[in-house]
Amino acid sequence: MAATMRCEIVSAENEIFSGEVTMVIATGTLGELGIMPGHTPLLTGLKPGPVRLQMEDGEEDVFFASGGFLEVQPNVVTILADTAEHADTIDDMAAAEAIEAAERAMSEAAADMDYSRATAMLADATARQRTIEELKKRRR
């Protein structure tokens, strides 16, 4: 049997996931991270993007985190997400619409809409879409 560790995902609104996993794959500020049991203690920021959890039975579960922090302690991975949701609950259409809206906001980036906010919106929306695609790939 594969070695496991605890993984806990919480967002400011509630507890999203808590259980034993064999691997956590997330997007840190410096790039993709794959964390397995026995990883050295690590503290990193998270970029908006999918968080994939590999379960003991080989199943994979996908969550979406729009930024936050990830802490690795021997045997525990804690993800403090700004907002997190189960990938199933993200609406495909809503994500596409959000991307469109963000791109429009950026092209119209006149004085009234500040540019950095628009980029953040775009990053968030594309991250959501990435999560959905990830999920779809798995379903196929």
Binding site: G28, T29, P41, L43, T44, F69
Partner: peptide, 15 residues
């Protein structure tokens, strides 16, 4: 100690 990514100061401040 932790590994900090990207940078301890920035990270701790945010946290």
């Amino acid at each position: 100690d932790y590994l900090y990514e990207p940078d301890a100061e920035e990270l701790i401040e945010g946290l």
